[in-house]
Design a protein around this nucleic acid. Sequence first.
DNA 1: CTGAAAGCGCTAACAA
DNA 2: TTGTTAGCGCTTTCAG
Lengths: 331, 331
Amino acid sequence: MQSKVTIYDVANAAHVSMATVSRVMNNNPKVKKETKERVLKVIHDLNYHPNAVAQGLASKKTTTIGVIIPDLTNSYFANLAVGIDDIAMMYNYNIILSNSNEDTEKQNKIIDNLLAKQVDGIIYMGRNQTEHFQNVIKESETAVVLAGTVDNQNTPSVNINYRKATHDATNFFLKQKQKVALVVDNANFPINAEYRIPGYRDALKENDIKFDKNLIFENHNSDSVNSSIYNNIYESGATAAIVDNDETALLLLNKGFNLGKKIPNDFQIISSNNTIVTKYGRPMISSITQPTYDIGAVAMRILTKIMNNEEVKEKNIYLDYDIIHRGTTRI
Amino acid sequence: MQSKVTIYDVANAAHVSMATVSRVMNNNPKVKKETKERVLKVIHDLNYHPNAVAQGLASKKTTTIGVIIPDLTNSYFANLAVGIDDIAMMYNYNIILSNSNEDTEKQNKIIDNLLAKQVDGIIYMGRNQTEHFQNVIKESETAVVLAGTVDNQNTPSVNINYRKATHDATNFFLKQKQKVALVVDNANFPINAEYRIPGYRDALKENDIKFDKNLIFENHNSDSVNSSIYNNIYESGATAAIVDNDETALLLLNKGFNLGKKIPNDFQIISSNNTIVTKYGRPMISSITQPTYDIGAVAMRILTKIMNNEEVKEKNIYLDYDIIHRGTTRI
DNA sequence: CTGAAAGCGCTAACAA
DNA sequence: TTGTTAGCGCTTTCAG
């Protein structure tokens, strides 16, 4: 193996200084045209590829960003990640992707790693940032953008208006005099405690219905087919459910079928993320629609701006949502 | 913001040389106990965190590996990625994850990026490595392991025996005198051309049935709900199908229902990856079972060995598979 | 427009 | 057991 060719070798072969080669590589305009071409030719002939690690050390920019994802196998977050990845690649950033499992220790380890690797920025997805995460970010002054994620720190973020979306979905059912259950992973997560549940209650209040906390169900992030939560929902007397996770909604639908429920006649469902999973249902599942890919893409775009110290007008961006009625709702 | 504390600051404060600090950080045994403790205390007091980029440049090891995935939103690959990520974290590696979309240009760009970032190794998932990829890998001598992926280059890999698994599934149907279709993404990909289709033909031959190429269907990686392929399959006269992708199998199942097919009475299905998606079916989908997570995990483990120049006995590892009969097969 | 030279923060001989 | 000293490969003033 011919040992790696460095900028030094290029400089030598082209009879210029390393500085000039560096300028050529970085498209610095003040290099004479002929010089540039000569250098470019040598670069090509020698098959020179700059060492990004060395560049990173010298320039203090790694063109790498960290992405923290709660669960790679969750269709919603996976779609966000694809949006992030596409835009990152477009702007020539690489992504260090880590699966947090929403686990505290793991998250702490991840953030330390990311910072050690000198990432230029971080996109965080998830529902429970650790204190350590927040402290460390603050100190390090690393740019962070939340995607499909809220916190109570005014961190830049890209989302839909969960409160209003949940409100709308609840209202849809309430107009039909349904008794509506709200199914969330964990009622204490900010996204639920501060957005979805308040949105649900907003609608209740508008319709003069008393809030019943027994109609809030938590499935604690479990995709388990055998969770008892599905039975509980059907036995609660609810006639409709808004579910914060497509996988859960599908499992709920199937369980209803097994229990002999007619959906949407006996029971209606609106899911929240409109991933492909909603299409796996029989009937297909009605859902709040989110521009999932775009949320990731916009988050990444914002992050590039922050990293370049460009002005960003809106720190907290809300993209449009809607509700699509498929087979699990009556209209 | 207090400017970053470096190894130099630590050395100063602890009245030792940088080398000693470095030794402490790297757990070099030949540091006197008291010295070590003093340094450790300073490290803690100063809240020193080593700069991995500088370490990478000096040591020529980045403790970062590249992972190429065809589609983050595909449940099978996402599960592999989780296995990879877990073991990587266990061994203190970070993962640069890139979505290739099985796109040639994108793959080429990704591999160049990864190499520029000086990753210590690469895990490749996908079905069509580009020539550029293979050339560049060879030159760079970067360790590569394939996960859930085959090639024709004898690259280290972790898989199940796709040929035998497909053979078994086909045989299961043939024993029932079914006319069996084989549904793959692309018949030319090595995994299909050299494993699944031969496995299918093996079983045919054993049962003295003539191969009919019209029973091989390609869905070209599309998850599309509206693909015409489903109709074609049902209209082909086949009474059973082996499908290489759980998402496709589910869509096929649902389409059958819409066409009024009774499954498994009129038509049977065996899927290939046993991801959670098989559980979304009504009935749940019978499937070849693969230790998906383990394939990723083992691939990562092998990669650590290769990167450490440890001996690896088996270059190509085959994990156990089985067939689980759920609701889409008759037994 | 180009070059010299000083780092970036760390590791790894080599000495002591 | 510890310190000295070269680098690792690149960017970036500062001169010219």
